[in-house]
Design a protein around this nucleic acid. Sequence first.
DNA 1: CCCGAAATGATGGACGTCCATCATTTCGCA
DNA 2: TGCGAAATGATGGACGTCCATCATTTCGGG
Lengths: 357, 357
Amino acid sequence: MKKPTLHDVAAAAGVSYATADRVLNARGGVAEKSEIRVREAIRRLGYVRDIHAATLSRRRRRAFRFLLPAGDHGFFARLRAALLAERLRLAADRIEIALQEFPPFDAEALAEALEALAPEDCDGLAVVAAESPRAARALARLKAGGVPVVALVADAGPEARDVYVGVDNLGAGRTAGRLIRLAHRGGRRGLVLPILGSPTARDHRDRLEGLRQVLAEEPQPLTALPALEARDDPDRMRELVRAALREDPPPTALYSMGAGNRGLVEALREAAPERRPMVVLHELTPHSRKALEEDLVDVVIDQKPAREIAAALAALRSLAEGRAIPAGLGAITPALHLKDNPPAAPSAREASGDLFA
Amino acid sequence: MKKPTLHDVAAAAGVSYATADRVLNARGGVAEKSEIRVREAIRRLGYVRDIHAATLSRRRRRAFRFLLPAGDHGFFARLRAALLAERLRLAADRIEIALQEFPPFDAEALAEALEALAPEDCDGLAVVAAESPRAARALARLKAGGVPVVALVADAGPEARDVYVGVDNLGAGRTAGRLIRLAHRGGRRGLVLPILGSPTARDHRDRLEGLRQVLAEEPQPLTALPALEARDDPDRMRELVRAALREDPPPTALYSMGAGNRGLVEALREAAPERRPMVVLHELTPHSRKALEEDLVDVVIDQKPAREIAAALAALRSLAEGRAIPAGLGAITPALHLKDNPPAAPSAREASGDLFA
DNA sequence: CCCGAAATGATGGACGTCCATCATTTCGCA
DNA sequence: TGCGAAATGATGGACGTCCATCATTTCGGG
């Protein structure tokens, strides 16, 4: 009744332990019929390699490198926190994580960091890609050099990475549009103001495109105003939104795709309640959480950074061990948070990281 | 630079391996000052026990038992599928899962099953509690007998379990209410029809209460109609909803808290588009997914069964090993799904049993 | 100062796999 | 038939911890 070992398999297959081992670890030099008998025995006994014995024995360590944009607040700070929280846990699995940061939005800095990396320096790489041919080339070189590459949050194109882990930003934008439509049921006139961070960021462009797709749906398409560019700057955001709310008629909904939402919330707080539009924005932060609480914001779309980190690590492990990547591993479904369903204990959840301590 | 072993710790502390081992595993019989030196060395070297060597060595196996309501479709089927998917993964960690089912809504059957359990039969128990004093007593007995008890999906009260893993149903109901309010922005008259599964189920009562709380908020409270009871039966549901949609005026929103939503969707499909209310319902199933796709349903609130199973297992492991439960472990934030943000690969996600779903 | 108890040291066999080495058998083919 | 290559067997030392056992030292109290 106890768990079969490889010795049991060998005995059942009528071969020596050495042969069973050769089959199991694909060391070669085994006649086909022996191999078949071993595989059959494995199947029949339901043998599964004891990973504890295995990892204990081969004392290989894995070094994964994460290249994240710097930033001590907002989304990337949460991403980094989630990564650091995993670090301890991973140490037990002989996995080392090197965290390297680069100035946000600086594709050249990223490219330089990538070019400085030798394929033998790490067993896997996760990057928040910035759009730049040079960075893409550097990534492709590493990938060609045998380094598993995971694009995190922002995709880098199929040649430059093995897996993309992140949300479907088109879908996120569409979901925002869907929520906004919901708030305009019953034939209410709609004037929707999209607010971009930087128009060059592909994820923001995708979100905008998704928004427009859904707003244009029949019947009763809603009007999308030209997108503002807040450049992720709270002050600029505040002024832009202030001005927008003074327009006549004022927008009936705002969708902010980027950062700097502190300024947005400030402008909303100033506005008379009856002029306040329905508001959808991205990323659950202390500010956005508070804004939900105050009824200034209706919905927050969140990328679930902890989940993204977990998925990236799972992907790196699979890739490094040459296993197949489970379908849908990288596809993160964005979470929607309203006033009454924020994550129970934000810091605790993030800190706890993986559940299987 | 390599990972320190307990031998290193012993050497650094100036004691023998045996003493370090006694401290690490709290075997007793160690002078206080030795203990302090060992702990200090552990801290200084950053020693962490190699869990692989440890689990390999102590060949303890853990047997956890899950008591779930039977049912080959709907939520409990997903819950079961998620559990079975984890089973393989857990086998590698020497954890056995015994799955036992009882007729749904049959508290007596559950109680009987619980009474038949001896504390030494299992190292942990997860139960979808049914409300019954007898079941609660049986659980309390097991808990007193030293068996870690996790209440899953439905709570059993503090005396009967160690942790509750599940969603905050009041919050789920409030969120539904919040979404419904969103769809009545701009002073639209609201007539909201709540549909219960069984009024005796506490989770449904909680959801209803949450809904009512939010609908009653000022300004512009919405009218909540008396709740219908569909008893989780699709046929009954269809007839009830059909009748409700013929009322004049028809309800502007439906909130279905229980199962049997297939019937609801059928009734909606028959209705003229302009009479269709805004619809919120629970649990992502093939049916509800399809209904989202067809624009018959606006929002689906999901309990994330895979996440609940993962959390329950994490809790059981922590409890069985006498560790503290991370704060917020059991609190599952319900997910909101609209047409454009369904989980990417439903089956794959469930099969992968991923943690941060 | 001596005795028993408490604390410590020393040691070795698991646990299951990985991996290298060397010896032996089997097989294909000239 | 014999030769070399391929396949197989046999074996043993890691890996780091757990746990039991036995020997030895230290310590406190009478």
